[in-house]
Computed example of a mutant assay.
Amino acid sequence: MGLIGTGPWATATHAPALAAHPDAELSGVWGRRPEAAAALAAAHGATAYEDVDALFAASDAVAFAVPPDVQAPLAARAARAGCHLLLDKPVATDAAAARSLAAETESAGVASVVFFTLRFAPPMADWLAERAAEGPWFTGRADWYGSFFAADGTGAFDSPWRASKGGLWDVGPHALAVLTAVLGEITSVTAAPGPADTVHLVLRHAGGASSTATLTLRAPERATGVTLEFRGARGTVSPQAFGETGWGDSGDAFRSAVSALVAAARDGRPHACDVRFGARVTEILATAEEQVRAREDGEQRNRTTPQAP
């Protein structure tokens, strides 16, 4: 497996997990900064590639740790080269680009897995599977109140794409992934803006259930936290302590995702979190973004239009 990217996630999670995985070998590293790729590859006894197509040619599969709109065209290129794909979420921030990537992947006949962290983190993955087996559920809720950005616009997660796209696109995929795991396919979304980058979603699911999500990266520090719950005939359930049965160790989750891709490549059975699911998540988020923008534009027009006496 080759690795695309040299940033914090690639360095702390992807490269160590690939280098240590019993069913995978880190075949090489490519990044937009050759010196960073060389340093990361050397740290794990791998080869640094200056030509991304050469890395594809040397790999059976490729893992991505780059911004979504850099990822999509590179992943399509890797699929055409016959590489299985381990993608980051969201797969793209443009619905057409996500659909195109899914089509390229299907046409190439390669396996794909999208790393929705909570669908692979061992404690949470088990918890979600148990809740799905207990259904049907009446409603669900997934709220992500993050405070990733300091008041001056800097912070540990202050990458340009996160700053531009906000909580809808960064933590929104996590919310949609866990709600879908228990309540089933999302068939419609209604979105409304809140303060700063906050977005409120109301979702309908194929089985008749509904759910809500609140998403932000700019909550006040004392207001941060994650809530996940499902309500139905069995009562109301949620992880007792999200930190204990939630994220877990990101390295463990990524190793599970690598194993899932290896299994999908070997047996040919699509994984539930494949690129088609990733594209559907992008479509839902893009629809929500359009609705938020339309509401904000309408509110702005109402504020600037003189009112009749």
Rank of each mutant, 00 (worst) to 15 (best):
A196E: 14
S147D: 15
R141I: 06
T236I: 11
T187I: 10
G135S: 13
E185G: 06
G184R: 09
R141K: 10
A121E: 07
G167H: 10
S159A: 14
A209Q: 13
Q240T: 01
T214W: 03
A233D: 15
G172N: 03
A150N: 12
S210C: 12
R222H: 14
T139N: 11
G207E: 14
A151L: 13
P173L: 08
T224M: 10
A129W: 01
Q240N: 02
P195G: 07
S211H: 04
F149C: 01
V178G: 09
A206E: 15
A177H: 08
I186Y: 10
D170V: 07
A206I: 10
L203V: 14
S188M: 06
E185P: 02
D152P: 00
R218D: 13
A213Y: 08
V171N: 02
A213R: 02
P220E: 09
T198H: 10
S210L: 11
V237E: 14
F149E: 07
G153P: 04
A150I: 01
L203A: 14
V202H: 07
S164L: 14
P193K: 07
V178P: 04
T227P: 00
A209C: 13
W127T: 09
S164Y: 11
V237T: 15
G135P: 12
V189Y: 08
G184D: 10
R162K: 15
A175M: 05
T227Y: 05
H205V: 05
A209Y: 12
A191E: 05
V171T: 00
L183D: 04
T187K: 10
A129C: 03
A142K: 00
A191Q: 05
L201I: 00
G153I: 06
F242E: 06
F120E: 04
S238G: 15
S164E: 15
A181E: 15
W127M: 12
D143G: 06
T139P: 02
R218L: 14
L176S: 00
T214N: 03
V226W: 04
H205W: 11
I186D: 09
P220A: 06
A156D: 09
G235E: 15
T224A: 09
A192H: 09
G140F: 12
S210Y: 11
E185C: 06
L179E: 04
A150W: 04
G146T: 00
D197G: 00
T180V: 02
V189H: 08
A196C: 08
Y145K: 11
A129L: 03
F120K: 03
K165F: 10
S211D: 04
D126I: 05
G243P: 01
A125H: 01
E130M: 06
T212S: 14
R162S: 07
P122L: 11
T190N: 06
L203K: 12
V182K: 04
H174R: 13
I186N: 06
A241I: 01
A125K: 01
A125L: 01
H205E: 10
G172K: 00
T224L: 06
Q240P: 00
A191F: 08
W169K: 03
A209N: 13
F138A: 12
F230G: 08
A213S: 15
G207T: 12
D143E: 12
T154W: 07
V237D: 15
A233T: 05
V189F: 08
D152F: 03
R231W: 13
A151P: 07
L228H: 01
W169T: 03
A223E: 15
T245C: 00
L201C: 01
T236N: 03
P239K: 08
P136Q: 12
E229I: 04
P195L: 08
S164R: 15
W161E: 14
T236V: 15
